[in-house]
């Protein structure tokens, strides 16, 4: 479904990613691992279109999106939960989710339904509707992360890009968020490309794994192949 081929990208003059290729199939959870600074977030940004690719292609559902703007990619079904959450601080929680609807497919939604948040987008976050009137910036980190999830799910994406969703969040909410990821996987409608530090968690949800090193894919394989040797070689600091 998502196919990245020989992608090269970077900031300004410096090249961060060299020759990265990866694939995500429908309904699959693909995990992106690697030590700090190997280019995981850069890869997510280039897939979403925030960074321009120098070489290579990003194709989604068979359509080449390499030259397309982030908005076009969002409309073709990619949802993005960025590192640092990037909530609109001055917008209310409700408005944040409504912005998430911008990328939702227009057909089947009349004018009157323009403000309809799909129930299953927020069903996993019962605490959000209680906070609809509060400003996004006033929420705690964990609440903001839940909001970022709901915002991305509002457009009912077929692929969710999750960049360190559990970073800097208290353990109980980390568990909640993992539960959410598991339930998205169980629903089977949304594929996930996940960047995450916790090996235990990644192993419990992942179908396929890529390990990045120095901006290139150093290893890829399934859960059974991800053994201690691989972990020691590529992930232990």
């Amino acid at each position: 479904m998502l196919a990245v081929r020989q992608l090269e990208a970077g900031y300004g003059e410096s090249i961060i990613l060299r020759d990265v290729s990866l694939k995500v199939e429908p309904g699959e959870v693909v995990c992106l691992l690697g030590r700090n600074g190997v280019g995981k977030t850069t890869l997510m940004k280039s897939i979403m279109g925030l960074l321009k690719a120098r070489h290579g292609t990003v194709a989604y559902k068979g359509v080449d999106l390499t030259k397309r703007a982030p908005g076009r990619r969002a409309k073709s079904g990619m949802g993005y939960v960025p590192q640092g959450r990037e909530i609109f601080g001055q917008l209310t929680v409700y408005e944040n989710i409504l912005i998430g609807l911008e990328a939702a497919p227009r057909e089947g939604r009349g004018r009157g339904q323009a403000n309809m948040i799909p129930p299953d987008a927020i069903a996993k976050f019962p605490v959000l509707p209680e906070m609809y009137a509060r400003r996004g910036g006033d929420l705690s980190g964990g609440q903001q992360q839940q909001l970022a999830f709901a915002r991305a799910l509002a457009s009912q994406p077929s692929l969710l890009l999750l960049d360190e969703p559990c970073e800097g969040i208290q353990p109980s909410i980390v568990d909640d968020i993992r539960e959410v990821i598991r339930s998205i996987k169980a629903d089977g409608r949304t594929a996930i490309l996940l960047v995450e530090q916790s090996l235990d968690f990644v192993k419990s949800v992942g179908d396929y794994f890529y390990i990045l090193e120095k901006g290139a894919v150093a290893w890829e394989g399934t859960l059974t192949q991800l053994n201690d040797d691989v972990i020691k070689k590529y992930l232990t600091v």
Binding site: A69, R73, A74, F88
Partner: peptide, 21 residues
């Protein structure tokens, strides 16, 4: 107006959510 406020606060994120900046 909502789109406008979203773009002015966080252009990149608004673009990633499908707002035409």
């Amino acid at each position: 107006g909502r789109r406008m406020r979203a773009v002015m606060q966080n252009r990149d994120m608004a673009a990633c959510l499908g707002v035409s900046t």
